[in-house]
Structure formats: C-alpha cells, structure tokens
Design a protein around this nucleic acid. Sequence first.
DNA 1: CTATTGTTTTGAACACTGTTCATAATAATA
DNA 2: TATTATTATGAACAGTGTTCAAAACAATAG
Lengths: 213, 213
Amino acid sequence: MARRKDHTPDELKAWVIRSVLEFLQDFPANELSLRKVAKRVEYSPGTLINLFGSYAHLLLAVNASTLDHISERLNNRLSASQELEPQQQLLLFAQEYLAFAKEHPFQWRLIFEHRLDDDVPEWQQNRINQLFELIELRLITLRPTSTSAELQQASRTIWASVHGICMLDVDNKIFATDNSSELSINGESMIQSLLKHYLSSWKLSSNTHTPSQ
Amino acid sequence: MARRKDHTPDELKAWVIRSVLEFLQDFPANELSLRKVAKRVEYSPGTLINLFGSYAHLLLAVNASTLDHISERLNNRLSASQELEPQQQLLLFAQEYLAFAKEHPFQWRLIFEHRLDDDVPEWQQNRINQLFELIELRLITLRPTSTSAELQQASRTIWASVHGICMLDVDNKIFATDNSSELSINGESMIQSLLKHYLSSWKLSSNTHTPSQ
DNA sequence: CTATTGTTTTGAACACTGTTCATAATAATA
DNA sequence: TATTATTATGAACAGTGTTCAAAACAATAG
C-alpha cells in the first residue's frame, strides 16, 4: 500500500507526537504502548516503526518535542523580564521550569526516565546545552570576574539542584513532603531557598582556586 | 507441590532479593524480568508472585533492601566522624550518598524509576524520613536558633539538590558533562560547591520571616 | 502406618508487549 | 496503459506479567 492520501510522512510524525503528548497529559508513559499509539492515530504498529525506527525512538522524538516546549517557555519568560536583576531572572527561570514540570508531569518525567542503550543524540544534547547557556549568561553578569570553568561549575550545580527539587515536587511520593503538619514545603519555596543562599555566597566568593581537581 | 525442602519462604525472599541485587550490579533493571528472576533462583514465575504479590512488589522489596544498605553506609560514615564540624559531616554525608549511587547505579536508579500505582508504603517512607533526620540533626547544631519549619525546609532543599547532582553524575548522558574540554565537572565538586555556598549563607541568615507562604 | 487435610509449587493458558517481513495496495513514472 | 517505487499492512514470533486448576509434597488424624 502506498501513502494514504490523508498524511505525508512528516505530517504523520507530527500528528503521532501530538497524540502521545495529549495522552501524557492525563496518563503516565508506562501505560502507553506502541499499539495504543497506533490505535490513536489509526495506523498500524509497523507503520510507526517504519517512521521512527522503533518505539524507543518514537518516545525520543516525543522528548525532543517536550524539550522544545520547555525551551520556548523559558525563553519567553526571560525575554519578558530583561529589566530585572540577574538573580531575579534566575529565580524566574527555575520557577518556570518547575511550573512546566508540574503542569506536564508525565511529559517531564519521560525525558529522564526514558534512556536509550546508545548515547544521547547530539541534537538532543544541544537542546540541553542551550538551557545551560541561558544560566551562564546571568551568572556572568552576577560575577564578571568568574572564569569559564567556574561558570560551568556553578550553572551545572544550580541546574542539577533545581532539577532535583522539581523531581521531589512532581512526585511527592518518593520523599516525605506532608509527613506531619504545619506548612507543606513546596518546590517553589525550596527553589527560593536554594538560589537565595547559593547565589548570595557564590557572587561574593573570590576565585582563589579552581573548583575541581 | 508443597514446600521444597531447600528454602523456607523467608529464606527464598531474601535469596530472590540478593539475586536481583547481583543482577543490578551489572545490568539495568529494564533488562530484568520476572521470568529471568525465576530462572536465576530456579523457581517458577508463579511462585515469586505468590511470595511478593506481583513483580512490581518484588522490585519494591528490592528497593527496600537498597535503602537499608544506603542507610547503613551513611550511618557508618557519620558515626566514624562525630568529632568533625557539622558542615563537614554534611559533606561526608552527601559524598557517601554519591559514592553509593556511583558504585551501584542500577540499584540506585531503580529506587526512583520504579513507582507503584498506589501510594508508597509507610515503612518505605520511614526509611527516607530517617535520612532527613540525620541532616536536620547537623543543621540544628549549625544554627541553633532555627525553627523546626526552617530545618525541614533546609534539609529538604539540601537533600533534593544533592539528589539532583547524583542523578546528573550517575548518568552523564542526560546532561552534558564532558561537552567541550578542560576539567570535567564531576559530582564530587558540585556537591562541594553546593554545600559550601548554601550552608555558608544559611547558617548566617536570621529568621525574619517563615520560609514558605 | 495409612488416610486425610492443608499448604506450596507448578506449568499451561491468557492477554498483552515490540519487532520483523512478505504481501498487498497505492502513487509516480515510462 | 504498463511498469516501477514506495508505503502500509497484518500475520507471525518471541517476549512480558498474571491467573488458576491441578499436582506434589508435608503435616496431621485415625
């Protein structure tokens, strides 16, 4: 059977990804399957494998789309607040990331739960590196004397920490959040705490020695 | 068939868990299956389901065992260095956690990748709460005036951040670690950076207002 | 010591999974 | 219109977790 006239290959790819993202809005990824995706878009499982190579690569394409959405939101948030001070921008940056994670928890989780056997493709690596650059750009105005290695060190540390906080907040089941009483410690306040204390010390510290080794 | 005389139910449970942990020493959890476990311990799949309830609960029992191992290592590390200052102890604490994650990456990952549909059992929650208490105990000597809410806030923030750093270090594929050149930013240095800057600011900050809300 | 009761283990069966591939159906070209 | 490419399909395959009637053993009663 040749191409059904309703979709070109690229249209079908986009339509598949959109369908999966819609599913992940309500259900976790482990409840999805290649055959369910095929049913949703009314194509056969084999067709989707021809398109993406495998189910794993289909999910990878979904993750790429998610990363694009995240990147778009972060850029919009930042460009809409360029008059603010750098530490305020970094706070908005992290808060926007957390907001996306909480609005689309299953999409967000899939990015980190789904690993391929082979290495991550470079086009995906580039998407992630772009996010780091946005952080380093604010860090360098926060402390202009810092070296490139120090900027990388700080941006990675901050981002890994923010990411960990988001994980804790998205599934408040792993760690104990509401164990006893009082005010629940939400991700928002943890991000505030992290950036406030880390940055206030980092921007003042002199670079007497290289961070690692 | 009644009980084969080689193992009692509890012995079999322990033997199964040990076998899975051995597997996870070399291979990721997604390459394991109930049937493979059954083959390894030379029992039938149905027997293991009778024992644990389901394959998901079997993996949960494995995670409980892993958490015990982590807890044991952390307690040993801390009790062997009670003469040190609290921030030094927190550093050792985080470093030991990272060390375990890097020595047993597949065991460590399984704890957070494997989620049940229903809530986390309280006996697992208790294990995690114990780890938090160890942190809060050091934080309170670091800043005796801090309230219970502040301690919880700080311990959660620190631990979530440390956890995020470990994730980044265990699979250096997700984020870009060795993207360009120079000294690679390892988890050890990130943990040092995090604790140094966060704690140096936190222990000085006065509690003028409650952390959240 | 045999017969009965109770418990533990099993393997076949079920509904599912991702993947392969010969075949069939359509589109583009000669 | 006939031929060549391309594209979609569904059956088949090996794998998955789970169920459950039947079988095999242990413990007890007569």
